[in-house]
Each structure stands twice: as C-alpha cells, then as structure tokens.
Design a protein around this nucleic acid. Structure first.
Lengths: 124, 124
DNA sequence: CAGGATCCCTCAGGATACTG
DNA sequence: CAGTATCCTGAGGGATCCTG
C-alpha cells in the first residue's frame, strides 16, 4: 500500500484515467460523437462489446455526466444515448490522441520490430 | 468471440490504447518529459509504482521506441531512462488529456454527486 | 429492445525474495 | 542499484439466462 504518487499531477492524471480512460468509455464517446445518437443495441453491434460491459460503461458515463440517457417508454422500449456538452468537450483530447495514434503507430511497429530483431540477434 | 469492432478506427484507437494507454506508461512518459532523465529507482520512488510493473512497463516502452535505456556498467550499476523523439511527440496528446482532466474533473465530480443524490432520492 | 443477475475465467499488478 | 522470478489476489470482462 504505497503512497501511490508523490507528484500531485500524477494523481490527477491517474484519476481521470481511472474514470474515462478505459477502452470502452473512449470508444463509446467516439461512437456517439460520430453518430450523435445511438440506441443500446446499435452501440453494442457497432463496438462488438458485450452487453454487460456496455451497460456498465454507459451507466458510469452517465454518472460522470458525459452521456445523456433518454428513455422512451414505448413497447418495445427504446433508449437513446448521446453526448452531453461535457462529453463533447472530451472529443478534443480523444481526437488528439487518435491523430497521434494514426501518425505514429507505424513508427511504433518499426521500433518494435527492430527491438525484437535485436533481441533475437543476441540469442547467439 | 465477436469480431471485436466493426468500425476500423475503433480498432486503431484500441490498438494505441493497448500499447501506450495504460496508466503506468502515461505516468512514466510524463515523468521523463518533466525531468529529462531518470534512473530506475528515481522513477520508482517518484511514481510509487511497484518495481515489477516499472520494469515491465519500461521494457515495453523501450520496445515501442518511446524511451531510451542507457546502461552504465559501473558498480553499482546505473541505468538511465529518457524519452526518444517518438516519446517526446507523445507529450502533446498527453498534455491535452491532462489539461482536459484538470479543467473537467470538477464537473465530473459534480455530475457524479448529482447522479448519486438522484439515485438516493429514488429510493423512496 | 434494453438491461439485470450469475457464473466463471483470465490476467493486471502488488508483495516478497533472490541475483549480478 | 537494477533488475528477475514466484506467488497470490481481485478486478475486468465475456457468456448465458431471465424479465418488463
């Protein structure tokens, strides 16, 4: 049970990462940003996420004020999810991240290949 | 065993998140960005990370070409870690993320509190 | 259709001990 | 000091079945 982090900012970063940093949260926000509004099963199909995780993640996002949940009491029921303004504001950091990914995934792959080749070479 | 993601970009995002998206990678990059060069135990103390995870994460980052590892064969040994240019380039997305975190953590907390209050209220 | 409730399994990741 | 090797737990997350 270490004191976690000495540097305060690390604590902050950790916090935010712990909240909206998991893969599914990010992907859901991206999808909603792209399509505006999606229903439960639309998201499920689109992301290939299990219904359990979708349910959990959506509730967490709603709780954190990133996602709006609109329930239509029809039969069959219809629930629509969309981004709140806060959720919208999260698009920018995500986009920057995504852009970096697109630009540098190649470099990472190359570095990785080089590293692995080196490792093999050392197994003389 | 679903097809994972229908949307190709989700695949990319997932990929990058799977590589450098975990908490420790991010925190290490931030620390190195801040201090330029750090030794193993300096990082360990600074982050409050277990030495196992530090070791694993550093090797992964080195493999991905984000950090440089410099080994000084002295006694006692001395190993220094620093960012590669690729690692440097990762600072920007991280900073944007961090900034967003700082600006919006408060809002998230408020939303969360409101949500929880609502939930309690419904337990009539 | 939208999800709650279970079951179960994998593995991230901490604690500890040992080595060069 | 800078790691490697083990052990062990708990959270993450899929599969499945059930309901309104």
């Amino acid at each position: 049970m270490n004191k976690a982090n000495q540097c305060p900012e690390c604590g902050r970063i950790n916090e935010v990462l712990g909240r909206v940093g998991d893969r599914w949260s990010v992907l859901i926000v991206i999808s909603l940003a792209q399509y505006g509004t999606l229903r439960f099963n639309e998201l499920k199909r689109h992301l290939g996420i299990s219904q359990r995780m979708l349910s959990l993640t959506l509730r967490a996002l709603e709780r954190d004020g990133l996602v709006n949940r609109t329930y239509h009491p029809t039969i069959p029921p219809k629930v629509e999810y969309s981004l709140t303004p806060l959720g919208q504001s999260f698009r920018k950091p995500v986009e920057v991240m995504g852009l970096w990914a697109l630009e540098n995934l190649g470099a990472i792959d190359k570095a990785r290949a080089a590293y692995d080749a080196e490792a093999v070479a050392e197994d003389a």
